[in-house]
Structures are given as C-alpha cells and as structure tokens.
Design a protein around this nucleic acid. Structure first.
Lengths: 350, 350
DNA sequence: TTGTAAGCGTTATCAA
DNA sequence: TTGATAACGCTTACAA
C-alpha cells in the first residue's frame, strides 16, 4: 500500500523521451535488432530500467498478428483425480493442435461458473470445454452464435444445444447394480449426489431400471442423495447401517461417494457389498479390492478436445453427442454375497 | 481441409462495408448500445453472420485498457492429486486477487517446461509459479530482470535466484526414518526418484542422516532410486524382497512411490513396515493404514501464491525461501515391528 | 440515429 | 544508424 500516484505504466514513447531517441529506436532495442549503436542502446536500456518499462504484449500482438492460441477448460474440482486425468488428456490434444489450455475450476458453483466462463471468453480463447455446474446455459447462446466452439463434458448443456461428451451413466449404473443383484443382493442402497445433478439422476435411473428388471421394489429408505462430499457420503452410509432392515449392498454414485462409503464401513467395522462408479488408483489395494464401473476419464477428455478442434477446423453440422462406455471391473467388494455381509456389532449375518 | 483461401478474419470494417454503414455503427451493434435503428441493426447483424465476424478482443482490450489479469502455474502432472490440491490452492489465492490461473503441466520434461514457460510469458501473465523440471533456469534471467515475479514451488531454481517454497524434505524424511528406527528396524530401504531430482536427493539425505544418527551403516543394496513411476517403484520393491538380506522396512520417497511399494508388497503377500512421504486420501482405508510424513500441498500452493501477489503488489527485497514443515502421521504400516514382518512364501519371520 | 477523427502501444515501411 | 509516419482493429469524443 502506497500513496503514490496510480503509476501509469511507462510506454515506449516515455522511454524514447527519457533516452532522447525516437520510438522506433526503443523498439529496435527491445527486439534486439542489430543495427543500433551500442552507446544509443545503452542509453535506451538504462531508461528502460529507470522507468521499469515492460513491453505491452497486447499492442505487440495486435500489430504483429502473432497470437497465442488457447482453449479454455472449466472443470469442477482440480483436486479430484478424475478431472485431473481428464484435464491432462485435454492438454495433450490441445498441445498437438498448437493450443494451450487455460484451466479453471467451478467448485460446483453456478455463479462462479458463469464468471469464469465470461473471463475465459474475454481472454479470447478459441473454444471452450465445460464440465457445467449451472442448470441454465442460455447465457452462452450469444457466444455460440458468434461461432465459438463449445463442448460440454460429463453433463449436458441446459437451454442451448452444443457438442457434448457424456459417460454412459444409465447403462453403467445399471450394469453395476445388476451385478449386485446377480450375486444375490436384494437390498441395495444408492449413495450419490442430489438427483438435480444430471449425472446422479441418470445413474439413479440405471439403478432403478436394474431393480425393476429384477422385480425388486424400490425402497426409498435405501436411497441417499444428499451427499455432496466424501464426508456426507460417510454419514449417509452410517445412517443406512442403523436401519431396521439395512442394505446388504451399496452402489456408490461416483469416486467421492465411494470413498465415503468405504470409510463409513471401515469405521463401523461393517462388511457390505460395494460397487462404485468411476475407478480409482488404490481400488486394488484396499482390504477387499473395490469393484467399480470404470469409465475412462482420459478418453472423455481426449474425445471432447478432438471434437472442439474439429469445430475449430471448420467442421459444420448439428451438435454431436458422444457417449463414453463404462465397464464393470470385478475386484472383490462387488462379489461379496449377502450371506457374507457383516453389520457393526452383529457379527456375521444369516 | 478446404482449398479455400487463407480466409483472413473479417474485421469491423468489412462488416460495415457489407452492411453499408459506418464502422461506428457496427461497434454500436456489437456493444448493444441502444441508440441504433432496429432495421440498421438487423442489416449489421446479418452481415456479421455472413462474414462470420468475431470481434478482436486484443484490439478491444488495447483500446479500452481492460485487461484480464492472470498468473501462470506450471506443475508436473495434473493427474497427481498432490499437484491438483496445490493448484486448487493457488487458484483460490489468485481468485481473491482478481487474477485467473493459466495451468500447464511439464510432464517432468525440461524442454517442455521451457516451451510452456515461454508461451506463458508471451501470453502476458503477470507472474509465474513453477514446479521446475529442468536443471537450469538461467533462461529465465532476462524475465526476472524485467520484473516478472517468479515463484518456484517444491524444487529450487538452478542458476538464478527467486522466491521459493519448499517442503522440509531433509527433516521430513529424517523423521520418517527415525520413526522406523525407533520401532526397531535396522534394515530400512529407500525407494525414490533418482537423486538428480532435488526432492529425492534431499529426502535421501534425511534418510542417511537418520541412519547415521543411529549408527546404522548405509547399505547401498537397500537404496532404490531408479523409479520414476508407480510401476518402477513396484518393480524395485520386488527386487528388494529377493535380496538375501531383505529390508524389514521401506521408506517411500513420495506418494507415487508409496503406491508402488504397497502394490508390490500386496502382490507378493509380504508385510513390511512402510512410511511414505506425502499423505494420500486412501491411506486410512488400506488393510493396514499407511503411516506417512504428511506435508500440506494446499499450504504450499497458498503460501507460494501469496508470495507472488506480494511481489506484484510491489514488495521488494531479496528472494525469499520458505519451508513447509512435514509431520509424521502414524497410522499402522510404520509401526509394524521387525518381528512382525512377513516375507513372501516365508510365513512370519523370527 | 449515424458518422468522423483520434488514439490505445506496438511494429513495418521507407526515407534521411 | 536513426527517425517520421502509417497501420493493426477496436472504442471514445464529438459532430452532424
């Protein structure tokens, strides 16, 4: 904090005046053009130093036409390895196309999403990849009409239509729950985000479809969709364990919920069957390796980025929608039969 | 791919000509200024559409003086949660200071690091935070003299001096190894990156210091520093298990190595004492919860970013160097005494 | 309601 | 070796 004046940045003109030379000579020095007298150059350089002159890259780019190309990527949470992997894949593709990636995270906050996207657009990104947090994307319509390529990842756009890459949420969840049913479970809980989240809602649909197919009535008691964090999933799982008729199996809607579920079970000393959506690195190292419906985050990023660059390359046509399949990886927790389930303090059941 | 001409981007002038109006009127339409006849506006808009006109944000910013402020952050690997957490913290601080973060990853490739940093600087970032991969940063000296704030994270700069935030590598590793010694171990292996990496070299120093303090001779056989990935750490751990006199404990130099070590032990059905450097979320959920020397990635990011913004705020003075402490989190694997160690196929030992 | 002229901070052209 | 002048594509005064 200083009381000094707003300190307008020095320009080349200022430097030129201070050094007693012309604008162009300063430019020459800045660009290390060879035909400058060393004494003149020295004068200019000291003026540069004195005035703390820094070249304005904006003006330079405007004049030279040399522009840094970039694409924006908005994800939800940088510390979630699922998005880290996705972002890495996007960066790989962008790299191949001579673009860099400006990465920001919404923290699942709709207002923040809008602010960040507006920022990115002002920053002149060539295109935008978005894992949306908000429920209404009509604010992007002008930009879309303006021709900025937009690709939505993991969740669909609302109120506009644009290229989208989604996981096969319904089918994936269905496979996971069917697996549990095949093992013999009939009381299967669902732990996930609120169904206002598209991803959660779709996975919940898959869950219900699997139950319906097996003529297992849906028991609302077993559906926990308040959790938005590992801690919340942990709590909800403990609630499930206190039910008069607790579940023998749990389907966890994503990697965060899965960790919460496992933590709660571990804490309570319970053993239930568990299938998670999304793979995670340490799944194989847990006491009972974790069965998951794995979907390829890198693939989603790669495909999405490729769609974007196809649009930037001039590809026309209506918005496309791609689905990344998930597949079951049976490792252990999903193959625990109802007979082997252990509740806290109960000892083995049946 | 099209044979069409290079397709120079249309400018406002082009739009004006096409719509038969003046430059200024187009500008008015673009900025949605109200005082435009709707018929004129319509003509302009259709011209915009026809010519695929997009406003040049660079020129706009130059004229209006409205600039997007940003800082660059170069990390090693986006999919490593340690860096994800760090990046998130950096973004938080940047946010508070009205800057956005341009994030890129070096993949531990020195040439790539230089290229990305050059890109970032061309992009007119206000400052730069770097987890360096290269061994020589003299190429940054001109930029440093030009007054661009630079902060190095996790590893020191080489050949220049700049603000730096490091973990307490020596002390942290020492604490971890001392812990193993206190439990009774004397054959303690070190699994880590090549010591050409500063981080590894420092942690190795801490390892040796702890051994020396306890008068335990260093056994080169127990030092594995080829690993640069989870897979390599896994292999090296298996090599350790085949030694005539295998270790009873392993110190893993970072979270990646720790996963590799645990995977190998699990695969071989061995139980050794393990202490890892860096905490990880699932450490508590493994069969034996993992003892680690935890250091706060978020804290490193936060502190580093704050240093940067202090410099941007005009703070002078010599480069500063901050150390983020690590502390031991005893959870289980680090407290396995030598007597309880199990080697593959051997059954329990002693 | 629309247009003209000037200027943002550089670099390019051409002359001195 | 240096400098005057125009131009990059846009917005801001100020007229018309």
């Amino acid at each position: 904090m200083t009381l000094a004046s707003p300190a307008k940045r020095a320009t080349m003109r200022d430097v030129a005046a201070a050094a007693g030379v012309s604008l162009k000579t300063v430019s020459r020095v800045m660009n290390m053009e060879p035909l400058v007298d060393s004494r003149t150059a020295a004068r200019v350089e000291s003026a540069i130093e004195q005035l703390h002159y820094r070249r304005d890259g904006l003006a330079r780019s405007l004049r030279t036409g040399i522009r840094q190309l970039s694409v924006g990527l908005l994800i939800e949470d940088l510390s979630n390895p699922f998005y880290g992997t996705l972002a890495q894949a996007v960066e790989d593709v962008a790299d191949l196309n001579g673009h860099s990636v400006i990465l920001t995270s919404s923290r699942e906050d709709a207002a923040r999403e809008q602010r960040l996207i507006t920022d990115l657009l002002r920053r002149e990104v060539e295109g935008l990849m978005i894992v949306p947090a908000s429920q209404d994307h009509r604010y992007l319509e002008p930009e879309l009409r303006r021709g900025t390529p937009l690709v939505f990842l993991d969740r669909s756009p609302r109120g506009i239509s644009a290229d989208t890459v989604l996981l096969e949420n319904v089918a994936g969840a269905r496979i996971g729950v069917e697996h549990l049913i095949a093992i013999g479970h009939r009381r299967i809980a669902f732990v996930g985000d609120p169904v206002s989240h598209e991803t959660s809602s779709e996975r919940y649909d898959g869950y219900r479809a699997a139950l319906a197919d097996a003529s297992i009535p849906l028991d609302e008691e077993l559906v926990k969709t308040r959790s938005q964090s590992v801690g919340a999933a942990d709590e909800e799982t403990r609630e499930l364990l206190t039910l008069t008729r607790p579940p023998t199996a749990i389907f966890a809607q994503n990697n965060r919920h899965c960790v919460g579920v496992l933590r709660a079970l571990r804490g309570a000393g319970a053993t239930l069957a568990v299938v998670g959506f999304d793979d995670f690195e340490l799944a194989t190292l847990l006491p009972v390796p974790v069965t998951v419906v794995a979907s390829d985050a890198a693939e989603m990023g790669r495909v999405g980025a490729e769609m974007l660059f196809e649009r930037l390359g001039g590809l026309g046509g209506p918005p496309r929608r791609l689905l990344i399949p998930g597949h079951l990886v049976a490792r252990g927790t999903g193959e625990i039969p109802p007979e082997s389930v252990v509740f806290p303090g109960h000892g083995q059941r049946n």
